[in-house]
């Protein structure tokens, strides 16, 4: 197990986090939730940036507090709103990273920066949003970390830049024994990238599922009031009242497709599942 959060609790004024989460070896695990759901709090807890009020956090099967500087070399991090000082250049970073990480891959780092058209001698503060995001990811990947913790790495990027970054992330996983925990408010990114996803709302994990299972087995059923009354409710997880009747979330799409071929069944995307899980009424 690369990372394990067990009943981690954190209380702020008007907000509390209480969640368990696992990042398995070889997995890309996504964390999805609305703004303020607790994604960043989870990341910060896992990285020891904030103290927790309860529960346990383990990285590489070690308690977080026992993590040494050497262990931290095996973790690469991207924060959407934080990074190296903007008064440094890529040339400066090369020297700094070489002295921070024993496994820093200077050639690989410089190569990736060249491929990404990043200027070596321009201060980072003068980079565009896309360039900064690209650089943060290249830095996180530059020292062969076993875990990447990526908090909104694609925030503020256009489609092309996002795709480019997602390709970087995919290519990183080609070498085994690596894991990535990633959050994104663009869930479509995660659908194509992640092996499993955690949906979080108001500090609680409301769903954990393998991405394939979520996309294959979850579906949205649209019914009129009459159709809903006659519907078998045993596999309906949530329902949401609409003007035309009900929108229902099921984790047994095939069951309803076969039993009610005339009903409208839509594919369960992460966005739809998240929306229904949060706004829908539990049966």
């Amino acid at each position: 197990m690369m990372l394990k959060l067990e009943n981690v609790q954190k209380r702020y004024d008007g907000y509390s986090l209480d969640c368990s989460l696992e990042l398995r070896t070889g997995y890309i695990t996504g964390l999805v939730g609305l703004n303020g759901a607790g994604k960043t709090t989870i990341f910060k807890s896992a990285l020891g940036l904030i103290s927790v009020d309860g529960g346990g956090i383990q990285i590489f099967n070690k308690e977080l507090k026992d993590l040494t500087a050497e262990d931290r070399e095996e973790i690469g991090v991207v924060h959407y709103d934080s990074g190296f000082s903007g008064y440094l250049t890529i040339s400066n970073l090369t020297v700094i990273l070489k002295n921070l990480y024993k496994k820093f891959d200077k050639e690989g780092f410089e190569q990736k920066c060249k491929e990404g058209n990043l200027p070596f001698n321009k201060m980072i503060k003068n980079f565009s949003t896309g360039m900064k995001a690209k650089l943060k990811l290249i830095v996180a990947m530059s020292h062969h970390a076993k875990i990447l913790i990526l908090d909104e790495p694609t925030a503020g990027l256009d489609v092309i830049a996002r795709d480019e970054l997602l390709d970087y992330i995919r290519s990183y996983m080609q070498e085994g024994d690596r894991s990535i925990l990633i959050s994104s408010h663009i869930s479509k990114d995660l659908e194509t990238l992640c092996d499993d996803v955690y949906l979080i709302d108001q500090g609680r994990i409301i769903l954990h599922e393998e991405t394939d299972v979520l996309l294959d087995r979850y579906g949205l059923l649209k019914t009129t009031n009459e159709q809903y009354k006659e519907l078998d409710h045993q596999h309906i997880i949530r329902r949401y009242k609409e003007a035309y009747g009900y929108r229902c979330l099921t984790d047994h799409k095939d069951f309803y497709v076969h039993k009610y071929p005339d009903l409208v069944m839509e594919k369960g995307t992460i966005d739809e599942v998240l929306t229904l899980m949060i706004r829908g009424e539990r049966l």
Partner: peptide, 18 residues
Amino acid sequence: SYDEFENGYSFLFTLPFT
């Protein structure tokens, strides 16, 4: 102040040092 600027600490303290 450079380290602290733009939430810099939350990245800095993920680097390999205590």
